[in-house]
Design a protein around this nucleic acid. Sequence first.
DNA 1: TCTGGGGTCCTAGGACCC
DNA 2: TCTGGGGTCCTAGGACCC
Length: 439
Amino acid sequence: MGPSQSIKNLNTPRIALIDCNNFYVSCERVFRPDLTHTPIVVLSNNDGCVVSRSAEAKKLGVKMGQPWFQLAPLAQKHHILPLSSNYTLYADMSNRVMKTLSTYSPKQEVYSIDECFLDLSDFAMPLDSYAKMIRQTILQNLGLPVCIGIGSTKTRAKLANFFAKQHPLLEGICDLESIDTQLQAYFFNQTQVNEIWGIGAKITEKLATKGIKTVWQFMQACPNWLRKNFSIILVKTQAELNHISCLGLNDIKANNKQIIASRSFGAPVYTKQALSEAISSYVARAAEKLRQQNSVAKIIYVYIQTNRFNQASYHAPGVFLTLIEPTQDTRLLTLSALQGLEQIYQPGLAYKKAGITLSEITPNTQKQHALFAPKSTFDNSKSQILMQTIDQINQSIGKGSIHLLSEGFDKSWQMQSNQRSPRYTTHLSEVAKAYTDSN
DNA sequence: TCTGGGGTCCTAGGACCC
DNA sequence: TCTGGGGTCCTAGGACCC
């Protein structure tokens, strides 16, 4: 045996995907250990749909995205506990997870609130023991269970993560490249194409008509045929499954190209006044995001909707407004948005939802001025300073402390969120209240 | 009665031009 | 009584993701 065989193969691409199990539910359980074995679901805004399920809830047949009201009989029978979503808590927990994970690789891509990729290429240590360590650390430090998939490409890492979740024997970790080819083939044959990242319901259906149902079959399909019948995306997906990397690791977060703010209302809204307030609030939120990434927007889209499940009367007008010049000033954006509302509002209808989208977003090339700069040299600098000041105050003493009058104060249109848990990690007063309430 | 929100990318087809 | 053809740009809508 020559020395070459004991030397670790360099230029071995290895990507890990770390994904928190039932993230929202797990976050809730960190602060409510008494719920460890209770079937729990976390609901979307307005307590509308199921967005996270505990293992117990999954076992009872609760589906992802299912409307809560449809589950009433099942929930009653099995004592399923519904919780409103507590995004402040989840975002804070997510930040902690991502920060911890970032110490395990020089390259990290935060892919979603509960997932990230780590580049583990050319690591000398056996990757499965490294992954075990990562998993253990997150569990110990944050109380959150994660699964880890490892592969030569992002798509393989994603699939490996699915296997890690699926097969209890793997104990939450699957390094696809270190398991033998027979077992790989077994997994690929057993797994349906819709489990592949990038293949959804529509494509699954179309593939099935051509006789392609399993991951294995998909990997063998002719690329030209895929290109002709589907799209370039699918060709790349297939290449990725066959070890050819097409998707790089984006370790620098790109600026958003569009920013959406929309909400369903807690109760039907009839008046232009209430819609104006709602839209003003959404614009304020979106503009704050825009400023956080130091961008300006040229176009704002405004829309209002009646109940979309009532097809016969469904009415959903929207209008694009173009700003005279790109801006990040809440006041200018609000003015345009409210003009848009004037154009689309019809009295007498029961509106269920409203929203805005900022687009044509570009970097703010306007020269930056220090806060409270002695002299403003541009007209725009005054606006920037005002906006910066508002953002800073809202960040330090609480969201929405300062806002435009048009946002209103009453906010009767706001969503329902009746089962929200305390924001344990960010709002100490709520923890105290939870404690007194329970005693 | 009740049915989420926020993103990205690709493509077909229309508008327009020469 | 016959209505080109090719290129580019833009956008709406579809498909996907979490």
